[in-house]
């Protein structure tokens, strides 16, 4: 397993007497995983993914990334790991800085050691893949719309060819079309390249309908690690950690309470609910 946490704890500075992350045990493969991480503000989600990228180091426990042990203090050069685990921060468009869109996308790969020609080739491939119009390549990134800027920022990470792609709340602030485009794109990348994708999100619809595995954090602890289906059918867990159902599942619950439909496993999207209403569900 390329990401391996064994009893990993993390605290931000020694004065604090509580851990930001507490006794984390977790393995993630770099192939074929599509993971969502959920939990309330302050539950440790961003800290967890920063550990995966070796931006911060564990306070205790064993963290191994792509075979390299990450120690609490001094570490061997980490550039390789950071290239393999691409991390897209929240509002990544705030970090665009180059004169042109193309230069901005080429910055990441060059930073990880590609020559200018290699970086350009890699950038142009990604641009095609992401459907970024060639017209804007020589323009400054700052004049683009919010959705376009976000795409350019993500392209910059993808151009470095990471094996695992982590995104911290990638759809916040995008309109419905931008949101759908981005999620469809991530799904496509996942299906075509089998790269592992990890998304931090508050959107339960993303959890239910895009991810295969979901991890719930609560006050620095992993309190659930399993399929979205199991999570949303686990009423006690949802209640205890104050997690919402996807909108359409809430609609389904109300209809069930009124005795209008019945089901064993809660519907997670419109098609499933439609089938229950029409009695077409063969469970």
């Amino acid at each position: 397993m390329e990401i391996n946490f064994q009893h990993v704890s993390f605290k931000y500075d020694n004065k604090q007497n509580y851990d930001t992350l507490n006794d984390i045990n977790l393995t993630i493969s770099s192939k074929d995983e599509f993971i969502t991480i959920v939990g309330h503000t302050g539950s440790g989600k961003s800290t967890l993914v920063q550990l995966m990228n070796a931006l911060i180091f564990p306070s205790s426990g064993n963290l191994t990334l792509f075979g390299q042990k990450i120690k609490p203090k001094r570490n061997k050069p980490l550039k390789k790991i950071r290239q393999k685990v691409g991390l897209v921060f929240q509002f990544p468009e705030y970090q665009l800085f180059e004169e042109t869109v193309l230069k901005d996308i080429m910055f990441g790969p060059q930073n990880f050691g590609m020559s200018i020609d290699e970086a350009k080739e890699s950038a142009l491939n990604i641009i095609k893949e992401l459907n970024i119009s060639e017209e804007i390549l020589e323009r400054p990134p700052f004049n683009l719309s919010g959705g376009q800027k976000r795409k350019v920022a993500i392209a910059g990470i993808l151009a470095s060819n990471p094996e695992i792609l982590i995104l911290d709340e990638p759809t916040v602030g995008l309109d419905p079309r931008g949101r759908k485009e981005l999620l469809t794109l991530l799904k496509k990348i996942h299906e075509e390249t089998h790269k592992t994708i990890i998304i931090i999100t508050h959107d339960m619809n993303v959890v239910a309908n895009y991810s295969k595995r979901t991890i719930v954090l609560n006050q620095g602890n992993i309190v659930f690690d399993g399929t979205p289906k199991d999570l949303f059918n686990n009423k006690d867990c949802l209640k205890e950690f104050n997690l919402d159902l996807p909108y359409i599942s809430k609609v389904a619950e109300s209809l069930k309470e009124k005795g209008m439909i019945n089901y064993q496993s809660i519907p997670l999207n419109i098609i499933e609910l439609y089938n229950y209403i029409n009695g077409d569900n063969h469970e």
Binding site: D175, R177, V251
Partner: peptide, 23 residues
């Protein structure tokens, strides 16, 4: 225009009006 309606309204739109009046 790139927006989306609420999912419950989408569902209403999918259902046969005569068969599912109550729902």
């Amino acid at each position: 225009v790139g927006l989306d309606t609420i999912e419950s309204v989408k569902l209403i739109n999918m259902l046969e009006e005569n068969n599912h009046k109550e729902i």
